[in-house]
Design a protein around this nucleic acid. Structure first.
Lengths: 253, 253
DNA sequence: AAGTGGTCTAGACCACCGG
DNA sequence: CGGTGGTCTAGACCACTTC
């Protein structure tokens, strides 16, 4: 049966709308420019506001738009490349580290973390909270779990808690010889506390990078880092300047 | 998941609903089990269907649920780890390659790809389409751009197009000495063709992995791979068996 | 044909930001 | 305060799968 493609399956309105808006962004708007508000845009395209919002949500997910309550919708700059796996042989806290320690507590980690670390489920570990800023914007929040056995010489005298103690833990970590670091990336949604730190609403899409630091044949530390998915492109290796995705789509066929 | 009314709470209903559902999934459901339909669930929680759907969308984004039109909503298995950066010194198409060539065309790539490859914008390149299957499910679709200069000995006689030509291009690629491969990961939404291949609806969230293969000091090939974000956890290095994210949240504080 | 999730509407009110 | 995006409702119809 050769050809009977007569029936044009109408694509969803919000999908078509997204395409139209995307082309308009390429041709008629510049970075930082504010769009008309949602009610005006919906009226202009003859759709309900909810439908218009569905299109805007997609564009925000793709990093094309930035929306802020009480302010408006603006055209987002291209995603910034954030180096994640540059040097596979450097501990967190070393030189060239883009992270800034915030504080440090000692507490029982989630069961999955304890399993990955190989510690008992009820055993406390040092939990270092760090944040990462790039181009003046917060881009990631991290929890670094360090079992006491990895930093045996850490004295309680150093600092009971806070950023000073965080730095002490990181400093002690440098004394181990790092063999390898393995990472995994997956999609998640921001918890309330991470959202606050990343200047987003709870539930915002994030890229969760889990990194296992291996020293002496065992997992000496575990990092769970939460990156803003709308503004970040995670780079592994030297990916300087290359920008491929999200251009006008000219598809090979 | 008993009889349930949502207690009045300052946080958004859909957010609270998501938490309640998440806990129910942990305690009262097993992988593959089907949930009640959306209309019933909404009635049970005393919310509008749209609000219930907002909660389900989040859970699907986090890989907890799988929804299929005409079928229902099921509890998703844990995300599968998909190896992305195992061996930084292997060409696509080599042994241990999880990809399956689909076809190959020669066409002018998008401008951004041409720039990354260092070819002229109007120059045609070999475009190999591949798909990746894991545990019997499609997990990724890829476009591999190979400039003719990287495969000079490719004869037109080999095969004009199709999977045979794709294999020929990959085979020729092996002859170059691969120096390095650099990757970047970002969030995107599935185009119509990718969505079809991944068995998802257009616009579904995907992880876009862009990889640059460097040989002889220049970019010899460029891969743009689109992974299902709901079912995949991308692993760089040996991350076997480690499963950290998405557990009951016990937060250090 | 029946039942599922996906799309869409036309309203309403709320939370937040700025002047 | 007025204007913005964020949440929520109660419907309707559509596309798809299964029986």
């Amino acid at each position: 049966m050769g050809t009977t493609q007569l029936e044009p399956v109408p694509e969803p309105k919000y999908w078509h709308l997204k395409t139209v808006l995307s082309e308009a962004l390429d041709s008629e708007f510049s970075v930082g420019e504010i769009l008309p508000n949602e009610r005006d845009l919906a009226a202009r395209f003859g759709v309900a506001r909810a439908t218009l919002r569905q299109a805007l949500e997609q564009l925000e997910l793709e990093g094309r738009l930035q929306r802020r309550r009480g302010v408006g919708t603006t055209v987002a700059p291209p995603r910034m490349g954030v180096s994640v796996g540059t040097d596979p042989h450097s501990w967190p806290g070393g030189p060239e580290d883009a992270w800034q320690p915030v504080d440090c507590t000692t507490a029982v980690p989630p069961a999955a973390v304890a399993d990955a670390l190989g510690t008992a489920r009820e055993e406390s570990v040092h939990t270092v909270r760090r944040s990462r800023v790039s181009h003046g914007r917060p881009v990631a929040a991290e929890l670094l779990y360090v079992p006491p056995s990895s930093v045996p010489d850490l004295t309680g005298i150093d600092a009971p808690s806070g950023a000073a103690r965080a730095r002490a833990v990181l400093r002690e970590l440098q004394r181990l010889e790092l063999e390898r670091q393995d990472s995994a990336v997956e999609l998640g949604s921001a918890r309330a506390d991470d959202a606050k730190e990343l200047d987003r609403l709870p539930g915002a899409p994030v890229l969760v990078v889990t990194t296992r630091f291996v020293a002496g044949g065992r997992t000496a530390a575990l990092s769970v880092a939460t990156y803003r998915a709308d503004t970040c492109r995670l780079t592994f290796g030297d990916f300087g300047g290359v920008q491929v995705h999200h251009g006008p789509q000219a598809r090979a066929s």
